[in-house]
Amino acid sequence: MINKTLERSVIVLSWAAASILVMSVAILLGFLFAKGLGTLSLKLLFGSTPPLAAITLRQQVFDGLFPAVAGTFLLVICSTITAIPIGIAGGIFMAEYAGIRQKAFFSLLFDILAGIPSIIIGLAGLSLTIFLHRLFPGRLGPSLMISALSLALLVLPYLIRSTQNALESVDPLIRLTAPALGASRIQNVVKVLLPNSMADIIGGIILAVGRCAEDTAVIMLTGAVAVAGVPHDPLSQYEALPFYIYYISSQYGSPDELASGYGAAILLLALCTCLLIFAFVIQKRLVTLLLYR
């Protein structure tokens, strides 16, 4: 028996739910932009330091976001460089070499790793730091390196999963052609399957970059600090955009500092959104390039 009232209420509730969702996001972000758009300028990044001198590291920036941006940039580079080889190789194993039982076992582990709260990864990083500090007193402490390694662990399951999915979704026709012509398994993987799924793999990498850039919980336990300048040494503490936003939210001393917090939030939001769009475009663009070349 078809229930007309039920169907009507589903329609009404669906419209209501979608509007509530969109409006909440619009209000939060609208508030952020209303407060922060005015602060967006080169001065937000470089303060009173000449931009060129700051970028070439000839002068330190004391009243701008440049050190935090540079810290986030270095952090993302270090952690993705660590995670990419392991993640992609692990993904290839999962898609092409793992037996059914191995696959089930590893899948569960990687799901758990993906599901662990990032603060736990931070706690592991912190404990590692304390441990290393005891082994080598005075030489190792919370640092860029520890944060980068922890973040690499955080994004590892995403890289494995996106590589695995990309390889598994290669058209069976393409998958079977090279082996039929006598190619070995590894030749098929390296010369056919990887090039064919490159778009999705790169998309996964870009999403992992975004995850590294936005994460706050890991870095606040492993070495991000409020004032450190541009990091010169992987074993030094550093500034980062997300941590700056968190720090300002509780410790701002003047309206100017608070305004730079809004500016930093918009900057981080813009960065993550760009990465997200970039990932989508690359996945679509490369797919079309491969199909219509």
């Binding site: 939060l28 952020l32 706050t216 968190y246 939001l269």
Partner: peptide, 10 residues
Amino acid sequence: GIPTVVYSFA
């Protein structure tokens, strides 16, 4: 893609 810390800050 919206960072958690941005949500919380706003």
